[in-house]
């Protein structure tokens, strides 16, 4: 079993967790302004496609990321327009975005690249891998932390930035207020809808970036439905991370660990079972979190 439990497992964990981390951060933004955006799954899928498209057309990963960010902003504005401005059911809009993403990516894949199923090739330039010599000199941490693709590090920075934004800045305070007490925010002279727009644009960008990591970082290809419910797992992570960036990050890491473990256990356990594990564990975790919260509530509170 030493071929399963080694340092590479931890490095793989970081890699498989990253799309979920990025997507969950995006989803967390909308969650804090009071919208549960299950459309992140579709946003991730579209991000994955447009990253490949940009990278392929211009022969540089930078253009891939630029494509994805523009796409993310547009998707965020679109989501805002429909779910806030037109006050439609956020759940219906989320599902519709997922359907649109499934249709649009396959349609464009066939029309632009003329292929079915998946597109890969030497024309796609992947994200760069970063090596830190000072980090690599540390024996264990070096192998795990160094040599990952760009977006892995970006996702860690974003976790901290999101936390700072939400809890340490006036803007973050207003963001949270627009979800928890929109009337109070309005009374304070701020427009809650503005905050919700900002949140959904941030969500669009981060969810699309998570797709870019899938198609340019984790793999160098696009295949139909390659997001494979990771967006939904991200939504679950936000729920049991309680909307707090570091906790959501840990939840996503747990998912990544099980995913990576499953990939490496395929020699011993049927592949279908290992593929199933992350979803089952996520559901079980959601139940466990609720049960734990209940127990906490039941305990007599001292000092009152």
């Amino acid at each position: 079993m030493s071929d399963v439990f080694n340092l590479l497992l931890l490095q793989n964990t970081l890699r498989t967790a990253t799309p979920v981390v990025l997507c969950a951060l995006g989803c967390l933004m909308t969650e804090r302004v009071g919208i549960m955006n299950i459309g992140v799954e579709g946003m991730m899928l579209m991000g994955a496609f447009f990253a490949v498209l940009g990278s392929y057309l211009y022969g540089s990963w930078v253009m891939g990321i630029v494509f994805v960010i523009v796409l993310g902003i547009l998707l965020g504005l679109f989501y805002y327009l429909f779910s806030i401005k037109f006050r439609s059911d956020e759940f219906v809009i989320g599902v519709a975005i997922n359907i649109l993403a499934g249709g649009l990516t396959v349609f464009l894949l066939r029309t632009l690249f003329g292929v079915k199923g998946s597109f890969s090739g030497p024309g796609i330039v992947p994200l760069p891998t970063l090596h830190f010599t000072w980090l690599e000199s540390i024996p264990v941490l070096g192998t795990i932390l160094s040599g990952n693709t760009l977006l892995v590090y970006v996702s860690w920075v974003l976790v901290i930035l999101c936390w700072l934004l939400l809890y340490k800045t006036p803007l973050g305070f207003h963001l949270r207020a627009s979800g928890e007490a929109p009337e109070a925010l309005r009374a304070a002279g701020k427009n809650p809808d503005r905050m919700k727009m900002l949140a959904s644009v941030l969500c669009g960008i981060m969810a699309s970036l998570s797709g870019a990591h899938l198609s340019l970082g984790y793999l160098t290809m696009f295949s139909e439905n390659m997001s494979a419910s990771r967006g939904f797992v991200a939504v679950a992570c936000v729920i049991f991370g309680g909307g707090n960036p570091p906790r959501v990050f840990l939840a996503a890491l747990l998912f990544g660990f099980i995913d990576a473990l499953g990939l490496r256990m395929q020699k011993y356990i049927p592949a279908d079972i290992t593929a199933m594990a992350p979803y089952v564990v996520t559901v079980v975790m959601m139940v466990v979190v609720v049960l734990m919260k209940r127990r906490k509530k039941r305990q007599p509170q001292e000092g009152r």
């Binding site: 549960m36 299950i38 759940f91 939904f232 729920i239 199933m276 979803y279 089952v280 996520t282 559901v283």
Partner: peptide, 10 residues
């Protein structure tokens, strides 16, 4: 919503 979606894949 989340549990049913995840149970699909499972």
């Amino acid at each position: 919503v989340v549990t049913t979606i995840l149970l699909n894949s499972a």
